[in-house]
Design a binder for these strands. Structure first.
Lengths: 140, 140
DNA sequence: AAATATGCAACTTTTGAGGTTACATTTAAC
DNA sequence: GTTAAATGTAACCTCAAAAGTTGCATATTT
């Protein structure tokens, strides 16, 4: 969802967009969008201003925002993490396996992020424009 | 969890293990393990027999089972999938963006699987044995 | 001053994974 | 054969995380 919102903002190319409009584009609730925007603000991707007829806009060029950054900013629950087993009955094998898997999964995580870093918002924007052949800067 | 169970089975090197024992090792419930074993059976990783004093064992060498296969067999909800937005109010931009993101995420998925395919159970087993210096084949 | 947007708190809803219980069925072992 | 031990499976519960909802204070443009 974060990627989708950022893509819309990139599409609007600096023009501020309200959370209501973004919500309509992603087909969800404005408050959900605002919560997301807070995260994207602290990550330094967007700038938001309060007040009438304003909203949020990208504060970095789309080329400088890649998927790995977005992933790190947004992700809460890592896809490759072991469920925190309580190990009350400390089976040695189980314990060692956990330690080993943590290593493996950490490696997978970094590989994933390296992969995500290859794509940035500009790439995605190009894809969007190509795939539906619409002109830039024409809102809605 | 699937990886953990399969690692234990690999550790036992063909010796059948009951779901109760596996559950103890992962610190969970036997039924959960059995549910997982059904999936691993249809994926062709393990063989299970009913009856007294038997259980499950690997039916492939650990070298031939890699993390990508396990991932595909087990995973239900893809980490990089768009939430199925209903698009009742068909905003053209939103629609195109979704189409583009599907492409991007599919590419990420395949990259992830390519990465996971680099590690197999034998690798993990070696890590386990190295990291806690225990001899093979000594159960528990 | 009024209209419009965000910030934020509190609550509900939804969804999926995991856990639990219970029981029929199968099979090795005695 | 009988029995003990194991799986297969259904039906439920629990729990956490994400999303959605409502309401209102606050800020800012016009």
């Amino acid at each position: 969802m974060a990627v989708q919102v950022l893509t819309v903002l990139a599409y609007k190319a600096g023009e501020p967009v309200t959370s209501t409009l973004l919500a309509a584009s992603v087909n969800t609730n404005p408050v959900v969008i605002r919560r997301l925007l807070l995260v994207l603000q602290t990550a330094g991707f967007v700038e938001t201003r309060k007040g009438a007829s304003v909203g949020s806009r990208l504060c970095q060029p789309p080329q400088r925002i890649d998927l790995a950054q977005i992933y790190r900013a947004v992700e809460t629950a890592e896809p490759f993490k072991l469920p925190q087993r309580s190990m009350d009955h400390p089976c040695a094998v189980g314990h060692c396996i956990q330690a080993a898997l943590i290593q493996v999964f950490a490696a997978t995580e970094t590989a994933l992020e390296r992969e995500l870093a290859k794509t940035n918002l500009a790439h995605i924007l190009a894809l969007v424009e190509k795939s539906c052949g619409q002109s830039r800067q024409r809102p809605h």
